[in-house]
Amino acid sequence: MPLIIRDFRPGDAPAVMAVRRAAVPFLVQTPEALAESVAGAPAAQRLRLLVAEADGVVVGAGQTGLQHDTSEPGQAFANPQVHPDHRRAGAGGALLAEAERYVRGFGVVRMHSWVMDEEPSRSFAEHRGYASSRVAHVLRLDLAHAPLPPAAPPSGTQLRPLGSFRGDPRPLFALECQTVEDEPGDVASDAMDFDDWFADTFVHGGIDQELSTVVVVDGVPAAHSYVETDGRTRLASRGTGTGRAYRGRGLATLAKIDSLGRARAAGITDAFTGNDDSNAPMLAVNRRLGYRRFAGERRYVRDL
């Protein structure tokens, strides 16, 4: 049978996650969270999850859509992934071509993609007209044996699970806007919408509401560490940051220590995180906690 590129169906979730885990060994998500994130994606994102199928077997997948939370017009993303056992058979190229065709219909002028910082992934991107933009480090912590320091909040400071904000998440959104805007990147996330953030991050994003920590100072959310798990023993950071008025106090470290402690108590043994090469403060925090380099990713960009 020929290779087929089609849209994701909820029943594909286990097979797609098997492909993604094999292609990106530090990716952490459950099949249920994947299906929920696709179904609950913001309308403005125009998200599509493409599936590559050969002889009835899912061999690859790739998300594509618009970068809807930026003031820069015409920005889109595509991240094709192919199972290592099925590479060099055209699936990756077909996924990327369909993604480019799709976003062009929305007036997109630039496509962004993350690939593994290794051969042949770099050659795959460069052969298709993509230029290297930035590098990110993927770090791993052996949480089962890491000597975590105690999470000792100073006076006037509370450590609360993310889920405790279900009744009123708007203060978290205000914090998120600051931390995301200040992250290094090719496109500024400076146009976030509360309803989109609430649906995509707080409700459908797969973030663990009990293992994620928010640091509250004098009643105001000041820092956070959000995490997602694979439903088994692995965890990945989904964002750690501090509000501008509270930086320099070690609050991001405090949030991360508390979140990791909660995770270890819940049976998590491996923790992954990713940091842009230029994000020296967060790289320093993670290395102090015992994270060590596991892999690398490279951002590629193409003008359409």
Rank of each mutant, 00 (worst) to 15 (best):
M1T: 09
D7G: 15
D12C: 14
V19D: 04
A22F: 05
A35I: 09
V38H: 02
V57S: 08
V58S: 06
G65P: 02
Q67F: 11
E72W: 04
P84I: 09
A91P: 01
E98A: 15
Y102H: 08
Y102T: 04
V103F: 03
V103M: 13
R104T: 02
R104S: 10
G105W: 00
R110P: 00
H112L: 13
E119Q: 14
R122E: 09
S123E: 08
S132Q: 14
V138D: 05
L143K: 00
T157Y: 08
P161W: 10
D186F: 03
A191F: 01
D193K: 09
G206D: 03
V215H: 01
V216G: 04
A223F: 02
V227T: 04
A236Y: 08
S237N: 13
S237H: 10
R238M: 15
T240G: 10
G241P: 02
R244W: 03
R244H: 12
R244C: 07
G250F: 10
L251Y: 15
D258E: 15
D258C: 13
R262V: 03
R264C: 02
A265H: 04
D270T: 15
F272V: 05
D276Q: 02
A280N: 00
A284N: 09
N286Y: 10
G290E: 12
Y291K: 08
R292I: 12
R293F: 11
R293M: 15
E297I: 09
R302Q: 13
